[in-house]
């Protein structure tokens, strides 16, 4: 049982770290803010969840598991709001938006 917990936790942690690594690579490979937001903020949503699940396997006690669950809920609520605000500021302040992407409608 102990061994199973260790293996399952490690698998989840490694998957989460892999996704975070991809997010960092993507951050540098894309050129434009709106494209970068996709990888920077988005892979986090999955990576944080996987890492927290891995830590749940390590933690073992009910209290710690519930707290990690709350961490996931908070990140999943805060993450879209943050990236949404970055995008909104970029779209509303950039006068040459059409050079970067096709615009079918503009707020």
């Amino acid at each position: 049982m102990e061994l199973f917990r260790l293996i399952a936790g490690t698998v989840f942690l490694v998957c989460g770290l892999f996704i975070f690594g991809v997010a960092v690579i993507g951050l540098f490979r894309f050129r434009y803010v709106l494209n970068r937001v996709h990888v920077a903020a988005k892979c986090d949503s999955l990576a944080v969840m996987l890492i927290c699940i891995g830590l749940m396997f390590y933690a073992g006690t009910l209290g710690a598991i519930l707290k990690l669950l709350l961490v996931i809920v908070l990140v999943w609520l805060a993450n879209p709001v943050a990236s949404h605000l970055i995008c909104k500021v970029e779209v509303e302040t950039n006068e040459h938006l059409e050079e970067e992407c096709e615009v079918e409608g503009r707020p």
Binding site: K42, S45, V81, C87, V91
Partner: peptide
């Protein structure tokens, strides 16, 4: 809906 669109990678809600 807006938050789910933002959470799924590949799409960000602007407004």
């Amino acid at each position: 809906l807006a938050n789910s669109i933002t959470l799924t990678p590949g799409t960000v809600t602007v407004d």
